[in-house]
Design a protein around this nucleic acid. Sequence first.
DNA 1: GCCAACGTTGGC
DNA 2: GCCAACGTTGGC
Length: 152
Amino acid sequence: MKTEPDVFSFDDLVKAKKRTTPWEGVRNYQARNFMRDHMKVGHQVLVYHSSCEVPGIVGLGEVAREAYPDKSALDPNSEYYDEKAVKDPSRWVHVDVKGTARLTKPLSLAELREIKGLEAMLVLRRGMRLSIQPVTDAEAKIILKLGKPAAL
DNA sequence: GCCAACGTTGGC
DNA sequence: GCCAACGTTGGC
């Protein structure tokens, strides 16, 4: 799951109440569908920092709650407000994510590109903007091994 | 700040 | 339903 650290960083997640946050603001159907249809409680999440000095995977989390309506879409004062969601609150949904571990060896995008076995990762694909992407078990295994996660 | 790549919108 | 125009993402 990508996040811009200037907006919401992995540290912010760690500092959040119960280290858990509603993953608000996703306004892309593919990403929404992925949360809604595939992310179940307990599923592991890789947290990726984008649009920052060193983009890359910095931490781990887990799905703490299955998809439910994103209330930021209903708040006219939110930058994520969507008037179309007022009539249809299930238009935008999100899961809750709980931070579980920090990578003591964060894996930058540049490093990820060099790691054997990760060649097919979507995040490495040119022009890949999807903010929530599936990761295979094999890929996750490699990342967990190299990233040396420290439980929170 | 640039710009390629992509998603969305809206006229037809 | 097509597709041009536009807006956004995100690495560099």
